[in-house]
Every structure is written in structure tokens, then in C-alpha cells.
Design a protein around this nucleic acid. Structure first.
Lengths: 259, 259
DNA sequence: TAGTGGTCTAGACCACCCC
DNA sequence: GGGTGGTCTAGACCACTAA
């Protein structure tokens, strides 16, 4: 049983240890791809109890520099170049180039990107989505749900909702690959000219289900982004509901200095 | 010493307990303002060891529904109405109304707002800020650091950096209250007409220091926002570095559908 | 099968808060 | 002083992973 030295120090031992490990990573003593010493080895090295090392490793994980897997150990992550998600990516000139926004951005960053389509088909509009689309809750809409990978790991899930009367005559929207420029190009081909996009973001800790879908440590932050695509007639013809691993993205927006 | 029942259950006991407590809050059994039962009481109620309750409470805190203070206990938080931080708040017409952006938004939301100025004065430009301002790292700039409160709790720290040659002839910028419309109005009065603002956001877990400054549970997500204020001459005359409690804000941006 | 992380116990001491 | 949360111990058992 513990002789309990007590927690009297101003800065707790487990924080000190966590900081030391994080510093070793930042300083390059532990390089990406290296394994962090096992917990029992750290117990010996620091001369503390297992629980203390355990708490320290929780802190280290929270720094996002390390990935822990159960029977294996903790791996120093290759600092993934974050994807810069700029508001400029909706420019028509990017679409005319034939690429969807995500592909252009990924190539720019020199990363391997993959999209896996999880579902395309009719669905009942969820309440908040229906409100944004200006239809009744439960009305039939087209849902397009997909999972984005980056360098092999899932980083983002996205579901687009489109009113049925908008999509029913555009067969490409029911296809996994809607063609050059993506679904926005098809919508503009069909006469739905966009005036603006409105993005709403909120960051919060991932739920258990979300953290497993995005392969995150439980409680790691995610960004919930909802985008309304508004046409020149003022109609919202698409709502895109997106969940992203927060450590994988930087968002940037240009705001004109309007009167 | 423990007879160690072991952690064999598929869903750990501490998660079960945490979920139960969270459900009690969501269902209104525990109302805002109530105290969560003390840890020792929970130990008796659930018949588990203190450490298990402790881990459960860490989970509960991560939900953001509860605020724990050392010698007191855990208080069920009044679900604060989030502040909607819209990109429209930089419109000149809002400034002409005489109010700074944050005040207008807070009043709109019916919340009490307070700003505490922590520092105004010359400072050496940090590297990344210097780069954005187009000056050398370490050059003298004006720093304005402030802490924003909402209903009595700190929700945001912000530091503005302005090049010295821009501010040296605008005495109001050295004052705690720069007058109607805030510092942007003073800058435009002085001939620095804004063309656009560029905001860059990233969400991540709070560090220990940050979580104490913003009265957050350690590891709760924060949003790091950096804004460049760009004039019509293309010069960045202000960089504002902001750290926000993620659960207190929703961000929204309008993106014109440009060519 | 050996090693690793994950869960749990029972008990100690400390620091903070309020009466 | 009595209660509350925060840190720490020493040891047990379990689940996952890889040789």
C-alpha cells in the first residue's frame, strides 16, 4: 500500500513528467515514428507509481503529438501537415479546373487524399436541415454522405442534403462521381447560380461514437461545420453538415470590409 | 489494498457512472445551480473506489455541463447561451453606431458583458505576428491585451498588435477606451481604410495555463483565432490574436460566390 | 507467451473552502 | 475543524498485440 508522499508540490509530478516527454518530442529527442518508452519503463525511470505515469501520458496524448494503441504502446505521430481550409476554395475558377475543392487542396498540400462514399439516396430531412433548406421536417431530400481520408486516416465526415425538386432532374447528383467541378458545378449547370455560402462552425469534444469514426482519442476536439449554399434567388439548395478532426484543419476566411 | 475486480467489462464502470450523471443533468434531475453529490458520497452510492469516481467526474467535466472548484464541489452550470460570432460584425455601420463589436453582440444576446484591460503598451512583436504585420521580429509594436467576461466568467482573451508607426500619432489607441466604434474606427479616422479582414481559426485542447485563465476544465477545447486587418493599400495594420472557450461561441462566415 | 496499455482498489496525505 | 477535491502509492486483474 502506498506510503503516500502526498500531492503537496505546487506543480504536480505528473504534469512535470508529461512536460518532459512533450519537450523531448518537440526537441527531436523522440522523432516521429519512434515509440515512447513503455509505461513500466517510465515508472522505473522516474521512480513513481504506475498511476502517476498513466496520468502523465493522458496529458501527453492531449498534446496531440502521440498516438497510443492498446497492446502496443505510444507512437510519436508524424506531425501531419494540417489542411488549410480556405474560403477561397469555392471560387468558380477552381471548379472550372475540373477538380472538387478537397482534391485541389490536398494536392496542394502534397498529401494523399481519398473519399469513400457511404451513402447516396433519398432521406428524411432532419429538423435543423429542413429549416435551413426551407422545407418541412421529414420531407424527402437527397443525402450524400461521405468519409474523407488523408494519408490513410479518416479526418472528416460530410453529409450534403439537397431538396428533392432541385436534384430530381440532375442524374449526376445521384452518382458517386458527379463529374468535373463536383456537385456545385452540376447545380450551376442546371441554373442554380450561387450568390454566397454561409458556414457555421462550432468546436466541441468528440462523442464516443464520433471519436471512433474519426479514429481520435476520446474527448479530442472536433469541429462541426454546417454550410448553406445560397443561390442568387436567395434559395438554399444545399446544406452540408461536416464533422472534422480539429487537429487536422486550419480554417481561414476573408471578410470584406463592408459598410 | 484492492481486491481488484478488474476492468473486464466491455464498457468501463467509470464511463457508465459518468453517463448516468450526465443523463441526470440533461434530464433535469440535477438542475443548473445544483451541486453534484460529492465524490465520497458517489463512492458510497455506486460502491466503487474513489479513483473510479474520480475518472468518472473527469468525463463529466469534459461534457462541459459542470464546473468543479477545489474545496467546494461540482456545480451544474447554467447552460450559457452561446455567443454567435458573425462575420457581419465588422460592418462600418455597426461601428458608426458607436459600439464595439463585442458589446453589440452581447446586448443582442441579452448577456452581461465586461472587458478587463490587462495591458496596453509597447511590446516586441512575436515572430508570427511580425510576419503578418510585415515588420521584423522583435520590432516595437503596440500591444493591447484584454480579457472578455460574459455573465461573470472569462470566455476570451484577445491581444491586438499594431505597428508603431501606425499608432504613434493616434493617442486614443493608447487608452483603455479608444472611443466610439473602437480601435478600427480610430484607424479609419486616421486614413487607414480597411479592405478586408482575414480570420484564421484552429481548435485544440486548452493547455493547463489557458484552461486556468479561461476557467475551463483542463483539456476542454479552445478556439485560437487570428485576424489580420488589411487596408485598401494592402497593408496589415492590426493583428488580433484571440483565444476563446470553444463551448461559448458559434462562428459564422458569409463567403461570396466569387469567380 | 511476454509485454503493453486500461481498469480498479484501498488507503494516505495535501490544499482549498467555509463555518 | 470538517468537508471537498487533487495527488500519489502499490498492487491486482484484464484486454490487446506481436513474436
Amino acid at each position: 500500500m502506498g506510503t503516500a508522499v502526498g500531492g503537496g508540490r505546487s506543480v504536480p509530478r505528473y504534469v512535470q513528467i508529461a512536460d518532459e516527454i512533450v519537450q523531448q518530442i518537440r526537441a527531436g529527442v523522440l522523432k516521429p515514428g519512434d515509440m515512447v518508452p513503455s509505461e513500466s519503463e517510465l515508472v522505473d525511470r522516474y521512480g513513481v507509481a504506475g498511476g502517476t505515469i498513466r496520468k502523465a501520458m493522458v496529458e501527453v496524448r492531449a498534446s496531440g503529438l502521440v498516438e497510443t494503441r492498446h497492446g502496443k504502446g505510444s507512437l510519436v505521430k508524424a506531425r501531419p501537415p494540417v489542411r488549410h481550409r480556405s474560403s477561397d476554395r469555392f471560387r468558380r475558377s477552381h471548379r472550372k479546373g475540373g477538380k472538387a475543392a478537397y482534391l485541389a487542396e490536398s494536392e496542394q498540400a502534397g498529401a494523399t487524399a481519398k473519399v469513400s462514399v457511404l451513402f447516396i439516396g433519398p432521406a428524411d430531412a432532419p429538423g435543423d436541415v429542413a429549416e435551413r433548406l426551407g422545407v418541412d421536417a421529414g420531407d424527402k431530400v437527397l443525402a450524400r454522405r461521405r468519409l474523407y481520408f488523408r494519408n490513410g486516416t479518416p479526418v472528416e465526415t460530410a453529409t450534403s442534403y439537397l431538396p428533392w425538386d432541385v436534384v430530381k432532374d440532375i442524374p449526376e447528383l445521384f452518382s458517386e462521381n458527379p463529374g468535373p467541378g463536383g456537385i456545385y458545378a452540376r447545380l450551376e449547370d442546371d441554373g442554380h447560380v450561387f450568390a454566397e455560402f454561409v458556414e457555421t462552425l462550432q468546436a466541441r469534444p468528440a462523442s464516443k461514437a464520433e471519436s471512433s469514426e474519426l479514429a481520435l482519442s476520446p474527448g479530442a476536439p472536433v469541429v462541426h461545420l454546417i454550410r448553406d449554399a445560397v443561390t442568387e434567388e436567395g434559395r438554399v439548395v444545399e446544406v452540408c453538415d461536416t464533422l472534422m478532426a480539429a487537429d487536422q484543419f486550419v480554417f481561414s476566411y476573408r471578410i470584406p470590409a463592408a459598410d
